[in-house]
Computed example of a mutant assay.
Amino acid sequence: MTDLTDKVAIVTGASRGIGRAIALLLALQGAKVVCVARSAEELEDVAQKTAGLAVPADVADETDAQNVIDEAIRRFGRIDILVCNAGVGSFNLLEHFTVADWDQMFAVNVKGTFLLCKAALPHLKAQHSGHIVGIASDVSKRTFQHGAAYGASKYAQDAVLSTLRKEVRSFGIKVSTIYPGLVDTYFNDSRPGSPNAEKTHLKPADIAQAVRYVLEAPTHVVIDELMIHPLTQEY
């Protein structure tokens, strides 16, 4: 198994939910964590708990995304892991979506992944090593009512990561994508901990363990795609 001790890991959307769980677990495994999110106050809390670096940023902003990578390099001199987890979603009939809703989901879910990967790649290629992990969704592989905008953004994010996997493999860089089902978080204005979610949703820690699993795979093992969903989830 690959040792994560002293690996430099950037985690976006790290202030709460899945991103926070990933940041905390990677720190527990010995990684040096760069925590990224828009909320500076919540971000500082998780950075303190991980003994990591807090970089407030909007991943959909090109300058902010580049600054995340630059700060990681300035602080630690390298990047070993990039977890593109930041994501937003809203759900409605297609005819009721606003252009602003559509643009926001594509900006964060797709453009954010693109910008962080683009900024990190020169460093990863120079090292001939590194691992990019995208947190997509099981709706990257299916469709459902009220999910046109979110699903389209996740299909697009999946395409970005799948294509990138083919482009960087010869440089010794891995790209893995995780497709969670329903997760008990603040996503889509939800509140975690409801009795219903206890029975039907994954926990953020479940997704963090999936990330750990793909990161700790031996060097010669490539895990491109990992689907994870609760056994009670209905399709």
Rank of each mutant, 00 (worst) to 15 (best):
S15P: 03
D206V: 01
V83K: 05
F187A: 09
V168W: 04
N67T: 15
S129T: 09
G147A: 10
K49V: 01
S39H: 13
L26D: 09
G147N: 10
H131P: 01
L24E: 09
V222A: 02
R169F: 14
H220V: 06
A205Q: 13
T143C: 08
N109A: 05
L25N: 06
L82C: 07
Q66D: 15
Y150F: 14
I207L: 07
F76R: 05
S170K: 13
D189T: 09
M227G: 04
L124E: 03
L182A: 12
D80T: 09
F97G: 02
V46S: 05
Q29F: 04
Q127D: 03
T2W: 04
V33S: 03
D206Y: 02
V160H: 11
C35T: 11
R212C: 11
E234V: 10
V221N: 00
A148S: 15
V59L: 08
L43H: 03
D206A: 03
K199D: 08
A205W: 00
R78H: 14
Q104D: 14
L202P: 10
E95A: 07
P195D: 10
N196C: 08
C117L: 09
E216V: 04
R169M: 08
P195W: 07
S170M: 05
R142I: 08
Q66W: 04
S194F: 05
A100F: 07
T185K: 04
A159E: 10
V175L: 00
A107S: 14
C84R: 04
P56K: 07
A37H: 03
A40M: 06
I228Q: 07
D64I: 12
N85V: 07
A136E: 02
F91K: 03
D80F: 00
K199H: 10
V11S: 01
I69T: 09
D3G: 05
I132D: 12
S190G: 10
G87H: 07
K7P: 00
V139C: 12
A9G: 14
E225H: 11
A149G: 05
R169P: 00
D101A: 05
H201Q: 11
L182S: 13
D224H: 06
E225L: 03
P204M: 06
S137T: 02
I178A: 01
K7S: 05
K141W: 12
S90E: 14
C84G: 11
F76E: 07
I178C: 03
K49F: 04
K199W: 08
A107F: 06
R212S: 14
N188A: 15
A107N: 13
A60F: 09
D70R: 13
K118C: 01
A57T: 13
I207V: 15
A40W: 05
E234W: 04
P230I: 01
K203P: 08
A47D: 00
L24A: 12
L164V: 02
L93I: 05
S39F: 08
